[in-house]
Design a protein around this nucleic acid. Structure first.
Lengths: 195, 195
DNA sequence: ACAATATGAATGAAAG
DNA sequence: CTTTCATTCATATTGT
């Protein structure tokens, strides 16, 4: 992918500018988005959307619309995927209801983000994203960031399809893998955060 | 709910049954709808809705509900876009003052429609659509139409401006293009700003 | 290269 | 009217 931050989709450059490609989040942006989503904020209100956008903007060009679309697609997809997965191993059952307990293994960027947003708990409205900016990035438009650099190389691979609602998940099993198309962390169910 | 229509978008049509769950307006229908909307009738009353439906019906199956939904979505999205555009417009300096000026190249179907509806003016209650029907469709549901055939091949590109009031309107332009996905964007946020 | 898939974006339909 | 869901389309990316 363009890596730069979704701003230069130009593959050949030169003569194909008419079609502005679509936005493609880079690892850092994905990580943040994924985390927010997993934190329970599956449908951020307008205000938050802007905040999130500002945050992601530091890692590459992105618009509020992109954020909006991302969450919307994410939710829809999550739901669909889960419904389908459920049908597979329906009969037997049971087994363990393995509780969620989604926590990061060691000390990964994900863990850090988790802390910031409220860990596994779930979406504490007031501070939310704002604090993150002040803490991590607000420093300025400078360039380098901090932990996020880690994300730049992490290819998190997850098998969400797994047990539908039941698979717990070690969030980031950071590995040196190439950055595949990953996605899915594992979204237990649909948590409807209070509006 | 009605889901009234179900006409085939003819994407890869062939031996595929028209199992269309949701209505998709074809170019002709879109053109008409766009024009009506741009003419100022952003919220046609019940009576007009039926008339419009009858008109569009000649170009493909469509239900009253579809018309209703279309206008409703259109209104909502138009507004959204404007609000967003306003928010976006701030930093950039307005150096070039010739944004619009998008008119059809030669003589387009839009122009014709414009004439029928009363030009670029805006929604004259009494005659409005009615006259169009009498003119174009009254003939019966028979076979081909007249000028509308032109629209069948045009891939218009519209840019709604004021969403109602008295925006100028050349609803359509260009032609010969394949049916991409055009239209404007949607909810909040902004689109991909050019790098 | 081409095929397969993932995923961002557009829009019809419905719910609140 | 505003917001949300579901479906569909187009494009970016990865694999063979």
């Amino acid at each position: 992918m363009d890596g730069g931050g979704g701003q230069s989709p130009d593959r050949h450059a030169a003569g194909r500018p008419p079609v502005r490609s679509r936005w493609t989040p880079n690892p850092e942006q994905r990580l943040i988005l994924e985390f927010i989503f997993n934190s329970g904020m599956v449908n951020p209100p307008k205000g938050e959307t802007v905040r999130i956008r500002k945050l992601l903007e530091r890692f590459g060009a992105v618009g509020d619309a992109n954020i909006f679309y991302w969450f919307r697609n994410r939710r829809s997809r999550s739901r669909r995927r889960q419904a389908q997965a459920q049908a597979t191993a329906a009969a037997a059952a049971a087994s363990s209801g393995s509780p969620p307990a989604a926590a990061a293994p060691g000390g990964s960027a994900a863990a850090l983000l988790g802390m910031m947003f409220g860990g596994a708990g779930g979406y504490t409205s007031p501070p939310s994203v704002g604090m993150m900016m002040g803490d991590v990035d607000c420093g300025g438009g400078g360039g380098d960031d901090d932990l996020f650099a880690i994300a730049r190389q992490m290819g998190y691979r997850s098998m969400d399809g797994g047990g539908g609602g039941g698979s717990s998940s070690s969030a980031a099993a950071v590995a040196g893998q190439q950055q595949h198309q990953m996605y899915h962390w594992c979204q237990p169910g649909e948590a409807r955060p209070p509006p």
